[in-house]
Design a protein around this nucleic acid. Structure first.
Lengths: 339, 339
DNA sequence: TTGTAAGCGTTATCAC
DNA sequence: GTGATAACGCTTACAA
């Protein structure tokens, strides 16, 4: 009673061969209407369901795609995954989600596992600290479609979907300048990653365009957590001329900064403005709601999935490089009443 | 160059048969040390990797397990998944994550897909509103191990891992009583689900034990979101005798309640105390940090995975029913200074 | 110690 | 229209 029914069971039941059953089930034209009907009926009666493994082996295709993210418990990545699922699910693909926890070794390991799990493709956002591109080469060598999202890496022949981080950084900084801030600090995470690099470049360009000198002491690389933001504020406020605004590359860092500024009794936004990046939901929940830059993660996930499907169906070799817009979301932490 | 190398390729290279190659690769004792060595060397040289699909077909085992949750973007579920992954990964299992978005039809659909993807087991938390247990029967009928976590369903032969929701509700309510609150409202989500039912029963028992009458007007079923909490407060504050505390079955509802109370100019915790349930990270980030009940989701995930592995290895039929403790986390929203 | 061959559940290519 | 058979990549009795 426990063994699954196969097409052979159905065939035996009807005194025909498995091949005929297969044809009936797959709408092959070379079959009589009557046998098709009988097959479908007994299949239903016997609770038949096709064995995907056999199909996969036969077709050399698993209909599984790997989605690799640093972690799943940041709303940003969860939302991206939602977008990917939305798009892939109707095409019959299952998504296998893997977390690197920002560790390069784990990342390489996961890719290995996915590759020999006969995955049909990989969508991923690379870890901070991934310096060695060897495991990406392994993917390309096997001709497995690879789409990077958000955390990009300029790699030949790899598609990517990102937002316009430069514009995001530029707009956020310009906004702070318009609020009257002149000594604007920038908190980054890992300038070796394109996204953080571009946000910083946007920040710098906005300063230049407004003839504000770039002060290297105002640019701090911190850990991507509230603690990182707190430490950065400690460092900044100890300067002979402390800043009057913070442009953070991450909402968690911005949150930590706000917490620490609060402890120091500094009034936000009157004395000090803060803006984050990512538009995580908690930015709205805070009593002092936080300005941020929205990255439309669901849309990013959707787009990544579409790029992947394109690549798969058209077997195209040219890599798509999609750049989505960044949207400024202004809230209390950076908007002065007089504005 | 693109086709993957198989054991046949290796065999041809060495003028031996595939069987021998297989034995060499699987540490079968019936092989000479020299051939094993040669096989391993050429396998490495040819970049051989086993085809998991073939293995899976052969063994009738995919080494994939399905994890089904309402959604992935609540920290609670993300943390559970992390726990499950931590435990399953070293055993060679891949996790396929699926989201029901709280829709029963989607839930049934996903289960169907997973089942014919030859999954080795399913770990899941059921959707609110799932009334029909038919799709669960489908799982049991196929003898696929099923472990439910958090959102349980009293089903014969199904293992489950939950927290002690009754105790959580009881402790939270008792705490409010100790703070001096006497008119305590309870905001629930879906009393047809065990977890919410038990939290409510804990709430009621705490009232009884303190000789406080249960006021049915204080018990409100709301949507599990901030909006739900806001609406509930509107309803409660319109009562002739409004409550002086809220015990919410969800942090999101509690958050909405706090937001609305704030708008109404009600001082928390001096005039009104609020406590949530789940201990989502944002409860700490809020300027008025929120009390909540921690459900140790990572541990819950780990435990669910362990129960699953047990069931698989020992092929045991008896269902395990594990209940983890609930931990009260007291913060500003419910602790009065005088305390 | 190694080779042969069957089998896991399907589909595809022949024949008939 | 339907049946026989090979093939997908691997494991495993059974022979040799």
């Amino acid at each position: 009673m426990s063994r699954k029914t196969t097409i052979y069971d159905i065939a035996r039941e009807l005194n025909i061969t498995a091949a005929t059953v297969s044809r009936a089930l797959n709408n092959n034209p070379r079959i009589s209407e009557s046998t098709r009907k009988r097959v479908l009926e007994t299949a239903a009666a016997m609770n038949y369901e096709p064995n995907k493994l056999a199909l996969a082996l036969k077709h050399g295709k698993s209909y599984n795609v790997g989605v690799v993210v640093p972690n799943i418990d940041r709303n940003f990545f969860a939302a991206i995954i939602r977008g990917i699922e939305d798009e892939l699910y109707p095409h019959g693909y299952q998504v296998i989600i893997c977390q690197t926890h920002e560790e390069e070794t784990r990342e390489a390991e996961i890719i290995g596992t996915l590759l020999n799990a006969q995955i049909d493709g990989i969508l991923m956002s690379i870890s901070t600290g991934t310096a060695d591109a060897a495991h990406f080469q392994a993917i390309l060598n096997k001709n497995v479609p690879l789409v990077l999202f958000d955390r990009n890496l300029s790699l030949e022949g790899v598609s990517s979907v990102t937002i316009d981080d430069f514009a995001g950084g530029y707009d956020a900084t310009s906004h702070l300048i318009k609020q009257g801030c002149r000594r604007i600090a920038h908190l980054t995470v890992d300038p070796s990653l394109d996204i953080y690099h571009n946000r910083m470049e946007g920040y710098k360009q906005a300063l230049r365009d407004n003839r504000i000198e770039i002060n290297e002491a105002y640019i701090i690389t911190s850990v991507n957590s509230t603690e990182g933001g707190q430490d950065a504020v400690n460092q900044l406020m100890a300067l002979p001329e402390p800043p009057d605004a913070i442009h953070a590359s991450s909402d968690y860092i911005a949150l930590g900064a706000i917490q620490r500024l609060h402890q120091l009794g500094i009034k936000i936004p009157d004395e000090f403005c803060v803006i984050g990046f990512s538009n995580e939901p908690f930015t709205r929940f805070m009593e002092l709601s936080m300005s941020s830059v929205d990255q439309s993660p669901v849309e990013m996930g959707r787009t990544a999935a579409r790029v992947f499907l394109d690549q798969l169906e058209n077997n195209t070799q040219e890599a798509a490089k999609v750049v989505l817009p960044a949207k400024l979301c202004l809230r209390k932490s950076s908007v002065r009443k007089s504005d």
